[in-house]
């Protein structure tokens, strides 16, 4: 279990996060949604141990993460950031293997390569392992970094009962529709296999379709936390995002969240619930 307890982050006089508390449990996919500048990525960075909060603490299985060495922390949580760029020509397989070979827990290269290949297969890039990373498209690169994060959790040694958390900051931002749903299905499977997943995501429909829990943020505060049905309602979302949102029925009981202006243009305004 990864828990943020009363986190406040200040930059000068401005509070990027104000008294945010959040618990993510093993086996569940928690999605953070909210408008730009709401503090979603900041909260993720704090929970990753990358950013020290001004006040509050992050606990991993009850231990304050500022007291856990970065190497031990790496065995229990991995992170996919919004944009990771490499300055030197690595092959795809080499990048994924970094997940296992950098922390230095004595993972042999041959073992790392085996796990890295499995991770690449999971993101559908097994045929690309010998290609240079910089030759890949933005979406392919993003999937390589997801594979690296998986390889990190799959190889490094953990004690029984320790949480393995995967934190992803908008992993679908540069992906096309097919790969958006493929990647989220993969992440969902990770949750189902017992990992604690924290996902920052802009697409409300993807959050509705895949998340077990949804956290709604605005102005550095958590303004809603619950199941997708609890949080994804028109009034709460419209108020938080500052624009009229409509939940539109797409048949067979399925619903889609759209800004009202777009729903009108599509001529589906009449089908509102």
């Amino acid at each position: 279990m990864l828990e943020a307890r009363n986190i406040t982050v200040k930059r000068g006089a401005k509070a990027l996060l104000a008294d945010a508390s959040l618990m993510i449990a093993s086996g569940r996919l928690t999605a953070i949604i909210g408008p730009n500048g709401a503090g979603k990525s900041t909260l993720l960075r704090v929970m990753a141990g990358e950013l020290r909060p001004t006040e509050g603490a992050v606990l991993l299985d009850g231990d304050d993460i500022s007291h856990i060495s970065v190497a031990r922390l790496a065995t229990r949580r991995s992170v996919v950031t919004q944009s990771t760029s490499l300055s030197f020509p690595f092959t795809v397989l080499e990048v994924v293997m970094l997940g296992a070979t950098v922390p230095g827990f004595g993972v042999r290269d041959t073992e790392a390569a085996t796990v890295a290949r499995q991770a690449l297969r999971a993101v559908g890039l097994h045929a690309f392992e010998a290609r240079m990373l910089h030759e890949l498209s933005g979406g392919e690169k993003q999937r390589v970094h997801i594979a690296r994060a998986l390889c990190q959790l799959d190889t490094l040694p953990r004690q029984p009962g320790e949480t393995a958390a995967l934190l992803l900051d908008e992993p679908t931002a540069s992906l096309d529709l097919k790969h958006q749903s493929d990647v989220l299905a993969l992440i969902k499977k990770q949750a189902q296999s017992g990992r604690a997943i924290l996902l920052v995501i802009h697409d409300l429909n993807l959050a509705a379709a895949f998340a077990d829990d949804v956290v709604l943020m605005a102005d550095g505060r958590i303004v809603g936390h619950g199941t997708p049905d609890d949080i994804l309602n028109e009034d709460l979302l419209s108020h938080t995002f500052g624009c009229r949102l409509q939940i539109v029925s797409s048949g067979e009981g399925r619903r889609v969240i759209l800004p009202a202006a777009i729903a009108r243009r599509l001529g589906t305004g009449a089908a509102t619930q």
Binding site: R45, A74, L86, V95, T101
Partner: peptide
Amino acid sequence: ARGLNGFLLGEAEAMHLGVDT
């Protein structure tokens, strides 16, 4: 060497990978 390999992904990423940056 291992720490510097982590740095090639970026300083934050190096920390995520377990490097005492």
